[in-house]
């Protein structure tokens, strides 16, 4: 392996229903189709050296997913961006590729900005629920994880949470169907506080319970800056310009 390439990609529209495993199969095939000289692990069943950082859950769209590909021959990141994007189905879209300068990508993904579209919700009700959540010290929620039912605080990791101005149309609904948009930044923690945990929290503190499932999109993830917003995790790799 002579080089590691960091890839930012989006999962959009109907492809938000891909699971993490679906994506890893699709990426492996796209890498082969794009003739990217991916390195393989040694051993009885060699695997391509592709690693994923902080994948969004099934059903959640994202503008900021990250993976890293180890290659055997130096590659031009711009070309890999174009080739890989062309080899993936529309909806899995490659947005940015840089050459890695260290091994710290996962550590740099400190927090995520999320958008939640809630169709059929009254903006005032949403605003009150958000107010109640934000002013609470702790909001204990429960979620079934691989390790069983876990109880944890969903409040502390939420750095900001607000109702966005302006109504929008939810997918599959008439244009006049009201749709509230929540925007929030959540610090990555263990156990991870996910958008649905915050929704559970909103229900617990204010009885806020939208009828339809929300459309959730991760807008960004990266190192949290002074204002509590995620910055571009590739800034570090770009120092000195793209090679």
């Amino acid at each position: 392996m002579v080089q590691r390439l960091r890839v930012r990609y989006a999962k959009r529209g109907r492809l938000r229903f891909t699971s993490h495993r679906d994506i890893s199969r699709a990426v492996e095939r796209a890498v082969r189709r794009a003739d990217i000289p991916v390195a393989y692990s040694a051993g009885f069943s060699p695997h391509p050296k592709i690693s994923y950082a902080g994948a969004a859950p099934t059903g959640v769209a994202s503008e900021a997913e990250y993976l890293e590909i180890g290659v055997n021959r130096p590659c031009d990141p711009h070309r890999v961006r174009a080739d890989l994007d062309a080899s993936l189905p529309p909806g899995l879209d490659v947005l940015d590729v840089v050459e890695a300068r260290d091994s710290g990508l996962a550590d740099r993904l400190e927090g995520s900005a999320w958008e939640l579209r809630l169709p059929g919700v009254d903006p005032e009700v949403a605003a009150k629920a958000v107010e109640a959540f934000v002013t609470a010290d702790r909001v204990e929620v429960e979620r079934l994880t691989k390790k069983g039912l876990r109880r944890f605080d969903a409040r502390e990791a939420v750095l900001s949470l607000a109702v966005q101005e302006g109504a929008a149309r939810a997918a599959g609904q008439e244009p006049d169907w009201p749709c509230v948009i929540l925007r929030m930044v959540v610090r990555h923690a263990t156990p991870a506080v996910r958008p649905d945990d915050v929704l559970t929290g909103l229900r617990l503190v204010a009885g806020f319970a939208p009828l339809s499932p929300p459309e959730v999109t991760r807008l960004a993830q990266g190192p949290l800056d002074a204002t509590g917003e995620p910055a571009d995790p590739f800034d570090f790799d770009r120092v000195g310009g793209n090679r």
Binding site: R14, L15, F17, S19, D22, G59, P90, G172, S212, P213
Partner: peptide
């Protein structure tokens, strides 16, 4: 548009989206 709101409620929704 009518199918999409049902998909978050079912197992392996990706099998129904095509593409």
């Amino acid at each position: 548009p009518r199918l999409e709101p049902l998909l978050p409620k079912v197992q392996k929704p990706i099998q129904y989206v095509g593409g």
